[in-house]
Design a protein around this nucleic acid. Sequence first.
DNA 1: CGACGGAATCTAGCAACGCTAGGAAACGTA
DNA 2: TACGTTTCCTAGCGTTGCTAGATTCCGTCG
Lengths: 198, 198
Amino acid sequence: MTTPAAARRARQVAERRERIVAVARALAEEQGWEAVTIRRLADAIEYSQPVLYGHFPQGRTEIVTAVAMAGFEELAVVLSAATSGEAGTDAERVRALVTAYLDFAAQHPATYDAMFLLPVLIPFASDDTPEALRAGFAAIEGALTGLESPPPDPATAAEVLWGAVHGLVALHRAGRLSAGNDERRVDELVRLVTAAVD
Amino acid sequence: MTTPAAARRARQVAERRERIVAVARALAEEQGWEAVTIRRLADAIEYSQPVLYGHFPQGRTEIVTAVAMAGFEELAVVLSAATSGEAGTDAERVRALVTAYLDFAAQHPATYDAMFLLPVLIPFASDDTPEALRAGFAAIEGALTGLESPPPDPATAAEVLWGAVHGLVALHRAGRLSAGNDERRVDELVRLVTAAVD
DNA sequence: CGACGGAATCTAGCAACGCTAGGAAACGTA
DNA sequence: TACGTTTCCTAGCGTTGCTAGATTCCGTCG
């Protein structure tokens, strides 16, 4: 049986959990993930460190995972929105998708790191891959099947396009790409995807 | 002036430095970079920890950098070799390049991480970028300019292709791509690069 | 209302990390 | 053989993630 008090406690616990995730994400975006330590998080939420392990038994990795999951959900929304508009040429629609992805990565670098760089407790490419990840991938695949001459294997093509965009993000953020050339790289990528015919 | 004794010492110092780098790389490939600690390296070379800081004043990061540099030199060789054969169709030559890159990443995962994932003390996309990095990039760019219908902006196209391949490596190693689909992804990437016409 | 019992929370500490100051030892030179 | 420099080690600082055990709080029930 659930007494009112227990319900209230459960709510408080959930709220505190959210607060931890929010603080972790904000701190990561402001000062990088190496600044996100259990001690600092504990200070921020004004509890002792063991409390954090009550919420996240797997420790720091599980907190990073929570931020990553939030990011995947946001990214799925962003990509779906970018591909929902049916209008425009092939190139315009692909560009909208790519740009949306790049913008997301640029606006939330630390969150993006949690999603794609840091070790995290999410089952990928598996049967129980979370819905948000499937949705994001589906948006990419959908954009490709909607092309005038769709690729022969859309699922694989989606993986490649995803890889290409992720690669640009990774190299760009690591400072490996020529500066002030972002536009041209997008042009080139769009050209590759849309100009390829069998 | 350099006495014979000093020359011998210099040689010994250089050898020990190489030994540190070799042990770090081997340990990283066997157990991952998180297992590469100063204490363990010191144990392995049978010296105390401060000795390592004599060789690498910037600490652990500088050791990772040394491994990364070795990797960049090897990668440049591999890519040059893959693009040197003039024979074959466009698709075959691009495939050779891509495959060489993917193979290198698969065979030296930890080294690849040092080169592209971990924080490192190398000036990228700058005037004093090391020669090995330029050479690797030049190999990619060269393969593209050698196409039947070269891309309008080869340097940018090389960045994009490099990003695409790196993205595939990154996603693949993070377990984000469907298993047993590697061949098809390469097919698709080659298709994109070679089938694109202005 | 008051005492019990379980849950929630904190204090304190472990082992490991990167890194460094300061003293000891080894070695080349005179 | 004695000096002085270079090389090296011992010991320790501050930090990390994480946890065992004591303590405090709080809802429930007599």
